[in-house]
């Protein structure tokens, strides 16, 4: 466990990023939920929190693995000269996604539990399905944005990808549910499956980039 965390922390740009990742960011999301309740209805807030988290995760990743898969960037010779280099990258990428998914799950559980308590146990099933669907969709779209952020070493393009995915969930949701009358439950499930494929593919692709660094041709 310690080795995994150390590998992940090796990619964080400075101690301040650990403060942001482990303290500022989670506290800000919880604060957003409570403050947001003063202005937004429950349903709107359930949509806002995942999308804000999506944006925050993309921003953080720009400074951690941003551009890592771009041509030549995975060729870090300090790591390549050691037999432990490839393993370190694999562990860092895995811990990064575990942390991210854990944050989403914990935040979702918190939002659900608080709403359940607030509603006296009478949560609308449709609302719950909607919330899970939004969460799954946001996480999946975030994984797509991370493909761009990690493969293109250009801040403008990375911010462009971030902008698109922040706006995309609302549009897609309206199109898929209103026009195609898609069931929330199946949409959420589909997003979870796609998320799993996207995450696995991304880790595989980036570790492949590290392996390719050992070859000039």
């Amino acid at each position: 466990m310690k080795k995994y965390l150390q590998s992940y922390h090796a990619f964080l740009p400075g101690t301040f990023m650990r403060w942001i990742l482990y303290l500022v960011y989670p506290v800000a999301m919880v604060a957003l939920f409570f403050v947001g309740r003063l202005w937004f209805e429950q349903m709107a807030l359930m949509m806002v929190v995942p999308i804000v988290m999506l944006g925050a995760e993309c921003m953080i990743d720009m400074f951690v693995f941003g551009g890592f898969g771009a041509k030549g960037n995975a060729r870090i010779e300090y790591m390549m000269a050691s037999v432990k280099g490839k393993g370190m990258v694999n562990r860092a990428l895995a811990v990064d996604w575990i942390r991210r998914l854990l944050y989403f799950i914990v935040m979702a559980a918190f939002v659900y539990a608080f709403s359940y308590w607030e509603q006296g146990g009478n949560l609308d099933e449709m609302m719950v399905q909607l919330f899970v669907c939004i969460l799954a969709a946001a996480t999946f779209l975030m994984s797509i944005a991370l493909w761009v952020i990690r493969l293109i070493d250009n801040r403008a393009v990375q911010f462009g990808a971030l902008y698109i995915v922040i706006n995309l969930p609302a549009w897609l949701f309206m199109i898929l549910t209103k026009k195609f009358e898609m069931n929330f439950k199946w949409l959420g499930l589909a997003c979870m499956v796609l998320l799993a494929i996207s995450v696995a593919g991304q880790i595989w692709f980036l570790t492949k980039k590290v392996r390719e660094g050992y070859y000039d041709v």
Binding site: Q6, H9, A10, P13, N73, I76, Y78, M79, M88
Partner: peptide
Amino acid sequence: GYFMPNWSISQVGNVGSLL
């Protein structure tokens, strides 16, 4: 490209201990 560009000097030491 020897180090990650965003590493600090201390981080180089931390990574060195891992590698």
